[in-house]
Design a protein around this nucleic acid. Structure first.
Lengths: 140, 140
DNA sequence: CTACTTGCAAAGATTTTGCACCTCA
DNA sequence: TGAGGTGCAAAATCTTTGCAAGTAG
């Protein structure tokens, strides 16, 4: 089996992710971590995030055509994603019902349940109402 | 306002998507539609899929680092995604509970609820058990 | 007619990888 | 010391876009 090492790079990425509530993407985290470790590469950030996700320490939030964003797994919660500006909000929903076993494909082993509410955030509803169209893109 | 035209390309993409249960990606659909319209371009497929999604006729299923996959919106159903091979299965779960209004960010307007079960499908559990490791990647 | 569409090809963006050099355990 | 990890830069993917030419209404 492979052994995971505890390197400064991994520490830094983990801490940066844990201390952020903006559901950042890899590039954002890379910039953030550079303040501590100026030489860390984007590739390492990706590799670290991969490991965190595989370990179940973090989860990903994907939006079509956008960079994957990462979320440190605090308590059970889910996400509201704004179609307009891409903002991601935490939503406290506990006890999401699992489907009846017969609804799942035979033998499928569920490791993770994701519930996402897609729609338009308040700010974007306003800007839509005013100037008729146009998107204000708020990236992490 | 812009008016949507009914072109052969759009017809073909819509039909190809409607008649498929594999949750295909854009490239797969492009190949499929080429049998009818050999000259259709991948760009057009992407543009058409975009329109279908905006119209609510289709939904996307994103997996980190993978091509976005598309699903014609039949009845209310959700998805089980295999981490190993990427296969996507339909799961019949009706009446997914909406969060209490106060759980959502103020004023957020929900347009779409997505529930995804991530895990390992039966086939991949077997191949994991046998040869200890290794992934069989089944792309659409 | 003419505003919307398409094909094409090039540009963009995101993510992965090979390799030689480090470094934690 | 040696199995992992890192940096760098190039490559691989996936998706979007500008533009000239086509076409539905």
């Amino acid at each position: 089996m492979t052994m995971l090492r505890n390197t400064r790079q991994r520490q830094a990425v983990l801490e940066a992710l844990r201390d952020t509530r903006t559901h950042p993407d890899a590039a954002w985290l890379h910039q953030a971590v550079r303040r501590q470790l100026p030489s860390i590469s984007l590739g390492t950030v990706y590799r670290t995030l991969d490991a965190l996700v595989r370990d179940g320490v973090a989860v990903t939030i994907e939006s079509a055509g956008q960079a994957t964003r990462y979320d440190f797994r605090h308590d059970e919660h889910h996400h509201a994603v704004c179609r307009h500006c891409g903002a991601i909000f935490d939503v406290a929903v506990r006890d999401v019902p699992r489907p009846k076993p017969e609804a799942l494909p035979g033998g499928f082993q569920v490791a993770d349940v994701r519930l996402e509410f897609h729609g338009i955030c308040a700010a974007c509803q306003l800007s839509e109402a005013n100037r008729h169209g146009e998107a204000s893109t708020t990236t992490p």
